[in-house]
Amino acid sequence: MEETPALHSIDGTVDAVIFQNEENGYTVLRLEVGAPEPVTVVGCIPGVAPGEGLTVTGTWGRHASYGEQFKAESVERRVPAGEKAMLEYLSSGVIKGVGAATARRLVEEFGADLFTVLEEQPESLTKIKGITRKRALEIGASFRLQMGMRRLLDFLSANGLPLQLGMPLYRRYGAQALEVLRDNPYLLVDEELGVGFSAADQLALRLGMEGDDPQRLEAGLLFELSHNLMNGHTFLPRRKLLWATGALIGLEDAGPLEDALTTLVERGEVVRESIAGEDACYLAPMQEAEEYVAFRLAEMAAHELLPPAGLDGLIGRIEAEQGITYAPQQRQAV
């Protein structure tokens, strides 16, 4: 059995960003750690720039072409401190509308208060010659985007969630991503994000959500219906749905779950129908899809369907292209 690499932490200041993928946040950077040579750090650290302080937790490894690297699993980021680091950070181009010359004037004008001004009082940037009110607001907006991403990644790291979630969450919710996630951690239970219900539920409880909070109950019900699609079930009987959800979230009293289910039905997210004596509960898109399939089958059954001309030749070409041979019963079914 292969031994799991030990986790280590290193602390330093970003010297240079060698590569950064804007789509997924994958980054290669050099980190000054007080040693003769900087450390190469790789991992998901979107928006990072020279001058930032980082505490990186991860594992050491060796790349066949690039040598020793430190692979980041979690990252704590610190706003650049001191005029030199602030100047280096802003001169990197990480803030739209700010180049090296503008960065120097901003640092000279506002000093240690600069980042507070950028985030909270961007109109004050008009004190700098050549910065109009419009440009000042744009610079402030760009800086807030950077701070939003930084706080989102800090939140993910602190809660043991993959840093790779940062970019898709940011693309979806923008600068409000952290606020949206705090309001509804169950948004993480999404095919694109790939976070399991258990992890999202633990986060919600850690953030102070009560065990019988309606948001938690609704999320549990929707998860059970979605999860059972993988088992071939387009609906679940109401009794089974309530029991399974109660077992999932550790709630024995079905009353609150009944109320949550009623709310989902009223909002149109769940559809209830009587089928063969069962109170069936569907995700709304599944009920709509099932109705459509039934309608199309009925429509097809009402007309005589004739095979297309040259069917045998068509089947032969498909077999040749796909490298298969249909059994006699399969040919007949086609």
Rank of each mutant, 00 (worst) to 15 (best):
T262D: 03
G277Q: 10
D253S: 14
G255D: 01
T262K: 03
P307I: 01
E278C: 02
L257R: 10
A276L: 12
G255H: 08
G313C: 04
R267G: 00
E278P: 02
R296K: 15
H303V: 06
S274M: 09
A309S: 11
P308V: 10
A280C: 00
V270I: 05
R296W: 14
D312V: 01
E269D: 13
A294W: 07
L261A: 11
E299F: 08
E291V: 08
D312F: 02
A276M: 06
C281L: 01
G310Y: 09
S274D: 15
P308I: 06
T263W: 01
P308H: 06
C281D: 03
A302I: 08
R272C: 00
A284Q: 01
C281H: 04
D312Y: 04
A276S: 13
V271P: 12
D312A: 08
L297P: 03
M300C: 09
A276Q: 10
M300R: 09
A260K: 09
Y292H: 14
I315S: 11
S274A: 06
A276C: 07
A289C: 09
A309C: 01
E258Y: 03
M286S: 10
E291D: 15
I275D: 02
V270D: 00
C281N: 07
L261C: 10
G255K: 11
E258L: 06
Y292P: 02
V265C: 02
E258P: 04
A309G: 01
A301N: 15
R296E: 14
A301M: 08
E258T: 06
L257Y: 07
P285S: 05
D279K: 04
A276W: 07
Y282R: 15
T263L: 05
E304R: 12
E266N: 07
E269K: 03
E266F: 00
E304Y: 08
T263A: 08
D259V: 03
L261D: 04
P308M: 12
T262F: 00
A302C: 02
L261I: 02
E258S: 04
A276D: 15
G310W: 11
P307Q: 04
L306W: 05
M286L: 10
I275Q: 00
V271M: 08
Y292I: 13
R267V: 00
L305Q: 04
T262L: 05
V270R: 00
F295A: 15
I315H: 13
E290V: 09
E288V: 08
A276I: 07
G316H: 01
E278K: 02
I275F: 08
R296H: 12
G310A: 15
M300T: 12
A276R: 15
